[in-house]
Simulated assay, not measured.
Amino acid sequence: MAYLEKKEAIILLEDGTIFHGKMVGPEGTTTGEICFNTGTTGYQEIFTDPSYYGQIMVTTNAHIGNYGTTDLDLESDSVKISGLVCKNFSGEFSRVLATDSLYDFLQKANLIVISDVDTRALVAHIREHGVQNAIVSSRVDQRDQLKKELKATPSMKGLELASKVSTKKSYTFGKEDATFKIAALDLGIKTNILRNLASRDVFIKVFPYNSTYEQMMEFNPDGFFISNGPGDPEPLSEAISLARKVLDNNHPLFGICLGHQVIALANGVDTYKMHNGHRGINHPVKNLITGKGEITSQNHGFAINKEQAEANQDIEITHTHLNDHTVAGMRIKGKPCFSVQYHPEAGPGPNDATYLFDEFIDTVKSTKKQAI
């Protein structure tokens, strides 16, 4: 197809390694932390997930774009990744529900896309040397200048990004006459999290990332939720302070991904930047309470310190990642609070983890009864 004519482009990694490919659509340049996702489907959900803000996404599936796009698969109101790297980009698509091609969808977002890349070699390099900053550009003859631009790109370590993707004003989701009211702190919340809560007879008010405990209490919620999001959790001092106050006042609290890390920090457990992170839809997790395994969707580049969590008398580790034994879930003893590192709202085929929303509502019910 004419609009898929491609021009030479390069990927320059922070360690000096270069990969070659073809620019799909308009020429340009983008920078960010380069990472990869191993999912075979779900590219639109990935590209619109606020947790990927500031990252250049490498898709390991050989074909991208072949089933088009639909508003049903949006996780936010816009594309959040900084750039896309893939092997084969398809301008044609076949899917009953699709309303647009991926090409048109991404061009509306002015996203830099590079295809015809040896993604197997690139992913192998990232796995061995770790995620790092990269620059993708059609300016193949300006490598010295590209190196300068790459050097100026900030590291994800220590980078606060929740403010870039959080709502600017509070808004509500669900039916106002629902049985339960939940105050959600938006650090980069995914739409399907809101759908999962609303489907359980919940009315949600979503608050900006820097909202205070007092501001959220004006909603008179039955419980609190802290969402997923991008960047390093440590700079989120306001969210950490909020979590502490919620816990001090014994309100039900549920955290997912970045929210999980914020709750850990609020309890004196450090976080760290991972070598690769977990990004895919088939990550095995063991529930240490039930002994059951779960196939989960994950997307995070930071994790909580396992040794500190184990040594903390107020924390019980409830879930563990079976590939590397990182902490995948925890609860706070004596408090109506728990959190997970993965994404129970994502249904990559298995729906193994959606029970966590039911557990949260059960916690809210139980706490509400005790207050009567």
Rank of each mutant, 00 (worst) to 15 (best):
E218L: 11
R195N: 12
V285P: 03
G268D: 02
A266V: 01
V262F: 00
G259S: 01
G255S: 03
H275K: 15
N228R: 11
Y213C: 02
E294C: 08
F254I: 12
E294Y: 13
F219W: 09
A178L: 03
N276D: 12
P235D: 09
I295W: 01
D270H: 11
D248T: 04
N220R: 13
V262N: 07
R200D: 07
A266C: 10
L247I: 15
K292D: 08
K181A: 13
K292Q: 03
P252L: 12
M216C: 04
M217Q: 12
A243F: 02
N196G: 03
Q298W: 02
P235T: 08
K205Q: 13
P252V: 01
L236V: 11
Y209R: 01
F225Q: 03
G301M: 14
L247Q: 13
A303N: 14
D232C: 14
N210M: 09
I295G: 09
V262Y: 01
G231P: 06
H251K: 09
T296V: 02
R195F: 06
L253M: 02
P221F: 01
Y209E: 13
L242W: 12
N282P: 00
N267W: 07
F203K: 05
N287D: 15
I240S: 03
E218M: 05
I204T: 14
K245C: 11
P235H: 06
T179P: 10
L253N: 06
I281D: 15
Q298L: 09
L253C: 07
A178P: 11
V202N: 06
F254C: 06
F207I: 02
N250T: 14
K245H: 05
Q308K: 10
L185A: 00
E238Q: 15
G280S: 14
D232M: 12
V269F: 07
L242I: 09
P233V: 10
L236I: 03
N220L: 11
N249D: 02
N192T: 14
A303Y: 13
N228W: 00
G277Q: 10
P233D: 04
A243N: 07
N299E: 06
N220D: 01
E218D: 13
F203N: 10
I304R: 01
Q298S: 15
S241M: 08
R244F: 09
K175F: 02
T212K: 00
G231D: 05
E310C: 06
E176H: 04
N210I: 11
K292N: 05
V206N: 03
V246S: 09
N287R: 12
G301I: 12
A264R: 04
D232H: 12
A239I: 08
N220Q: 05
E307C: 08
E214K: 03
T296I: 04
Y272A: 14
N287Y: 13
F203W: 01
L265K: 07
A266K: 06
D186F: 13
S237V: 14
